[in-house]
Design a protein around this nucleic acid. Structure first.
Lengths: 256, 256
DNA sequence: CGGTTACTTGATGCATATCAAAGAGGGTGG
DNA sequence: CCACCCTCTTTGATATGCATCAAGTAACCG
């Protein structure tokens, strides 16, 4: 794969400054990451650790079971976290977008793989150095803890979804969550961009490609959403939310 | 409910000392909790915050959506964390045992309820005071972070289980996890004690009571486990682990 | 324009849910 | 100590939501 490691200065985010110690200070993704908790002085220190990497669609960013030597901030693009069973079954553990962090909670090994869903840029920190640098920095520790807590809450919600939600509820909740995540990144919540394919969605929601496809078709037929070109418009947010919450579908009217 | 709040000195763990500032120092569960990260001086400070509570089977320890004012260490018994949908479906998010902590990751509200599965004793700390007391204590922060990370890893594993495992794999993994948890608490991994009923297991594994029952019957018939009296003996650990890992069941021999 | 990949749609099957009822304890009062 | 009731568990019969199998169709790309 044509994945490259840059010593700063290359990617768009860092390009403007040119000076290495400004890389983090001028980073446009900073407000979305744990880095935002750091003071200006800490940021220039941090810049010395930052190492940019780009990956093209399909590239493996992290191998399953690889030693967890680094922590990654995603500054552009989207990834999936994934695990594969011996018999070929796949589970997608989550999707990561600009501003998300990968590897914060890892112990000594990454327990899941991470793969680029499109052109991706990550900002990579050597785990050991990063932790050593800010071992005593209370606001860094606090920020990291809050991020892990948020991940935990999301994982618990997803557990409930996978354990007790029906297919249509899962898809509705998935779309709502994506819209919300997009908003959190400072984008309009609609239209939703779907950088992942049906198979990834299926493996994330514990369903199959076909069920995803049928369910989306149904949501579209019921005029709750409209799709096209890797994007989804939420037409009826209230209706979608009601479905996500377990409301029965309106009985299928024959005429239309 | 006859649940009581004690100002220290009452429960067995703290009773021996009598002096309040020794409560945490003499606590027999300390080695399993985040408290273990604290120095002796910090522990006597912590003792001033500790407040014991006992709950009888079925009692609600935490209401769903209640403000997250406190953090709880479980020093005796077992709880379930639970959420109920409008239509009555229940999901059990997890089980907690002696040494586990509740509420560490909560934001402002507890997102799930917690209920006693048997006679339970918890050690309760006012969240605000606890966090203020150790805001600058690096090893406390570190311990808390590691605990939340461990919870996150467990939640991610459970997500995979709920998304892609079949019923028999789920049950096998559940039993193995319980045995492991028991070992971590310093008990023999077998026999496994099951303080929860079939319904709780079902709601935790995303199945129904009946499926749990049938699956357990099957495991017993295949001589992988034996049960009785709320306990499970693992007879064939390797066989159970293989099943958990997706091995096909041996074809059912007609004769027996 | 042909080949490739991703998505959709339809027919059928199966694992698990649901419905129903029969045991198995386990505590309580007579 | 037994009879009764209550709750939990097991077992059986049937139903169903989603998976699987199998074509088609659309989007994409060299």
């Amino acid at each position: 794969m044509s994945d490259q490691v840059h010593r700063v200065n290359r990617p768009a985010d860092a390009a403007r400054g040119g000076r290495r110690d400004l890389a983090c200070l001028t980073c446009t993704a900073r407000g979305m990451t744990f880095c935002d908790a750091l003071a200006a002085g800490d940021l220039s220190q941090l810049s010395g650790l930052a190492e940019f990497q780009t990956f093209s669609r399909g590239a493996v960013v992290i191998d399953e079971q690889a030693p967890a030597k680094a922590i990654y901030n995603i500054t552009r693009g989207a990834l999936r976290r994934v695990t594969t069973f011996a018999d070929g079954r796949q589970a997608v553990v989550g999707f990561l977008f600009r501003g998300d962090t990968l590897g914060l909670d890892s112990d000594c090994r990454h327990r899941f793989g991470a793969e680029a869903l499109c052109e991706v840029t990550v900002c990579r920190f050597q785990r050991r150095k990063l932790e050593a640098m800010f071992a005593e920095t209370v606001c860094y520790q606090e920020a990291v803890r809050q991020r892990i807590s948020a991940d935990l809450r999301a994982a618990e919600d997803h557990m409930v979804l996978l354990g007790r939600r029906r297919a249509i509820e899962r898809v509705a909740l998935f779309l709502i969550a994506l819209a919300e995540k997009q908003r959190a990144r400072g984008r309009p919540p609609s239209p939703i961009r779907l950088p992942m394919g049906r198979e990834d969605i299926a493996d994330y929601l514990g369903l199959t490609i076909e069920t995803i496809s049928r369910t989306v078709t149904r949501l579209r037929a019921d005029r709750l959403i409209s799709c096209g070109n890797g994007q989804v418009m939420i037409i009826d947010p209230a209706g979608l939310a009601a479905l996500a919450d377990g409301a029965d579908m309106a009985p299928e009217v024959s005429g239309r």
